[in-house]
Structures are given as structure tokens and as C-alpha cells.
């Protein structure tokens, strides 16, 4: 084989080899790059800053793929429940004047421990634990 052709062969091999190495290393480097959401834990989720929610108010927080209703009862008292109504899976809301959890779809009502007090829901809402960590309100599986 003339040296010129031999060189082409080596170029093919070398080019392919380096190209393939890059294609192997690129995913590895990207894999090691910290992802946007830095932790896997769906065991707890930060439900926002404490001062962002007024006393006697509630808001929906995403917990993994599940919506959670975070309620601030008083200055320091917090509660969190699964926000999925046990009747037909509508999203429940906090009813501030009546101080209860209420589902707009069929008027299901739960008390502030998640127990059904009126309407069609067949089961209570699952409760989550709430802790304050600095300014953050942390919701976790209880």
C-alpha cells in the first residue's frame, strides 16, 4: 500500500476513534454536570418563604408530581395535606372564613386534620409534615 493511502487509512481510524471518544465522553461530562434541580428527594419540598403566605390562607405546592395544599393557620402554625380530593380527584382549596378545606366540585369538606366532615369524599386527606427551616417552609412526608 502506498504511504499516501496508508495515511488515509490511519486518518479514517484516528478520526473515527477520536470522534467516538468524544461521543462517549460528552454524555459522561454532561452526566456529571449538576442538574437544575439539585436533589432527588421528593421526601421534602420547600413550599416557599414563610412571609409569602398570610396567616389563615392556603396555597397549592407541587410535591414531586402531587399537588399539596399548604395552609398557614396562625403566625407559626402550618399544616399541609394532599390537595387531591378523595372523591373525584379535584384540587381542594382552603376556605379561610370557615377554616376548613373545601372541594369546589361536589362541596366536599374536610376539617383541619384532613377528616371528612361533609359531602361525598369517601376518605380523609393525607397529611404532610411542615417544618420551618430558616425562612423556608419545608413540607415532608409524615
Amino acid at each position: 500500500m502506498p504511504p499516501a493511502r496508508r495515511n488515509i487509512v490511519f486518518w479514517i481510524f484516528g478520526g473515527g476513534f477520536i470522534g467516538s471518544l468524544i461521543s462517549f465522553l460528552y454524555p459522561v461530562v454532561r452526566f456529571l454536570n449538576p442538574p437544575a434541580v439539585s436533589e432527588a428527594s421528593v421526601n421534602e419540598v420547600v413550599g416557599g418563604k414563610g412571609q409569602d403566605l398570610a396567616p389563615n390562607a392556603g396555597k397549592i405546592v407541587k410535591f414531586g408530581t402531587q399537588p399539596v395544599l399548604l395552609i398557614r393557620l396562625g403566625q407559626t402554625e402550618w399544616r399541609a395535606f394532599s390537595a387531591v380530593c378523595t372523591h373525584l380527584s379535584c384540587i381542594v382549596q382552603y376556605d379561610a372564613p370557615r377554616k376548613l378545606i373545601w372541594c369546589a366540585c361536589h362541596n366536599g369538606q374536610y376539617d383541619l386534620s384532613g377528616k371528612v366532615i361533609a359531602g361525598p369524599p369517601p376518605a380523609p386527606l393525607k397529611e404532610y409534615a411542615v417544618h420551618l427551616r430558616g425562612e423556608d417552609v419545608v413540607i415532608s412526608r409524615s
Binding site: M1, G15, G19
Partner: peptide, 26 residues
Amino acid sequence: GLATSLAAILVTMAGLWLIIRWLHSA
């Protein structure tokens, strides 16, 4: 991405095969 990587792999394999053939003829 897979196709790109596979292309690089196939080029490398082709290169290797040519080198082996050349070795034999040499």
C-alpha cells in the same frame, strides 16, 4: 446523538478493518 455516535463507531471499525487488511498485505 445515537446516530452520530454510531457513525463515529462505524468509521473507527472501518478504519480498523482497513488497517488489518493492510497488515495482512504488508
